[in-house]
Design a binder for these strands. Structure first.
Length: 427
RNA sequence: GUGGGCGUAGCUCAGCAGGUAGAGCUCCGGAUUGUGGAUCCGGCGGUCGUGGGUUCAAACCCCAUCGUCCACCCCA
């Protein structure tokens, strides 16, 4: 296809049913977040590169090799956001939203990571995320998990996802553990896989979730992170587990769960699934009590999560039947091209009387046969006919396309009433 | 960033001991000039991803490149 423009690698167009599917996922996420008392925040897609390198960590894969970073016209170093939390934290600090108050915020939109595309992994992908600022302790963590679970239920995929949690400490406990881990692993350095060897210096914690079998064997005897948590941290994790148990939310404690951002502290959370390929993480998050201070704000506890809506849409298609995609409820056909004004007026009159009804006017001419064929293929339940006879009596004909019912010759009000009745009956 | 598979009509694909492109579906029209879904008839539609090489001749062989899919990796 050279000579023709094509979408940039890893960035997709979503049309028709695919777009509708993603929209449904986003709508459900928003509805649940609102029901939990979260407010929307709209954030820039572009931030200074340093916000991400400092916030996420220079040693992380995302910052070191997956960021879309560039200079603007005056040489300022910018980056397309690879995730939402850093920008959200920046916005809250900058706007003073954390001054003696808590915040419960949600956002939705595209994230950018320069990765090799594959099933469920795109260079531009849509995330929905939520953050709680200013609340320490396990309740916020538990509530975020409860909310995520509610989203899965709303989407009908609750049975297809699993929750894993872990406590990774912070501050002194983390430092002590890292020291012990590096001390333990260093003698094995030459036996580690290449990635892990590099991480021994850059980001030792990440070695824990290496999937290389030989590395995992070495890790079997490694010091245990849980043993290094202080009393407060243990208590906090215990509280979280109690809350989850009380709520009937099932989970698995995975002591090797470590996430790819440096800002996480205490609690980390990951939701995974089977059945959408190798990219099995559909959501994740955790507590990040140090991030606000790191970015220049006053010390503020915080926790959040994000989910990949593209993957959720994939999963939903895989595990739910889903009704066939339809773009139209009423398809307006006309006897002759000269009836366009009356047909347009009738279509609009119907839209006004039945809010939300998708009324589509036939365009492009053609005989009635062709128009009805289009009406049928649009998935519409009704065809509304505007012709000489209808116009003469200021009426329309309403034809049921999916049910064996007689065609009605009716006023717009009567047609609207019939459609409303049929819709409330649940079709 | 690494490895493998695949790029032929809008879609799904066939065509490959190299001899100048096919099917089904879709779409358009007709049978049916105020009525769709079934059937029948007809039609539109392709620089065979792109560039180069080998050859009298390349969709087919070779090289490169781009894209895509899958896995690694990473994450959502």
């Amino acid at each position: 296809m050279s000579g023709r423009y094509q979408a940039v690698r890893g960035m997709r167009d979503l049309a028709a049913a695919d777009a509708a599917e993603l929209r449904q996922v986003e709508d459900q996420c928003m509805a649940v977040a609102r029901a939990f008392g979260f407010e929307e925040i709209r954030l820039p897609l572009v931030e200074s590169e340093e916000l991400f390198s400092r916030g996420i960590g220079v040693g992380t894969d995302i910052v070191s090799k997956e960021m879309y970073a560039f200079d603007d016209r005056r040489g300022k170093r910018l980056a397309l956001r690879p995730e939402g939390t850093a920008g959200c934290a920046r916005a809250c600090i900058e706007r003073g939203l954390l001054h003696n108050q808590t915040q419960r915020l949600w956002y939705s939109g595209p994230m950018f990571r320069y990765e090799r595309p594959q099933q469920g992994r795109y260079r531009q992908h849509d995330q929905f995320g939520a953050e709680i600022f200013g609340v320490a302790g396990a309740e916020a963590d538990a509530e975020l998990i409860q909310m995520t679970a509610a989203i899965w239920e709303a989407l009908g995929i609750g049975h297809a996802v699993r929750l894993e949690i872990n406590a990774i400490g912070s501050g002194a406990s983390r430092a002590a553990y890292l020291e012990a881990l590096v001390a333990y692993l260093s003698p094995y350095e030459s036996e580690l896989d290449g990635d892990s060897r590099a991480r021994l210096r850059m980001n030792p914690l990440r070695i824990l979730d290496s999937k290389v079998a030989s590395t995992q064997r070495i890790l079997e005897e490694a010091p245990n992170l849980a043993d290094y948590l202080d009393a407060t941290e243990r208590e906090q994790f215990h509280s979280l587990r109690e809350l989850l148990d009380a709520l009937g939310l099932s989970y698995r404690v995975n002591p090797r769960l470590v996430r790819g951002f440096d800002y996480y502290t205490h609690t980390v959370v990951e939701w995974t699934t089977e059945g959408i390929g190798a990219q099995d993480a559909v959501g994740g998050g955790g507590r990040y009590d140090g991030l606000i201070e790191l970015l220049g704000g006053r010390p503020t506890p915080a926790a959040g999560f994000a989910m990949g809506m593209d993957r959720v849409a994939l999963l939903r298609q895989a595990v739910t039947e889903g009704s066939p995609y339809r773009s139209t409820d009423v398809y307006v056909v006309m006897q002759d091209g000269k009836h366009v004004p009356e047909a347009m007026a009738a279509a609009q009159a119907l839209r006004v009387r039945v809010p939300g009804l998708r009324v589509r006017l036939h365009a492009g001419g053609g005989g009635l046969s062709a128009q009805f064929r289009r009406a049928d293929r649009s998935g519409a339940d009704w065809a509304m006919i505007v012709g000489e006879a209808e116009i003469a009596e200021n009426r329309v004909s309403l034809k049921w396309l999916r049910e064996d019912r007689p065609q009605a010759f009716a006023s717009i009000e009567e047609a609207a009433a019939m459609i409303r009745d049929a819709q409330t009956d649940g079709r």
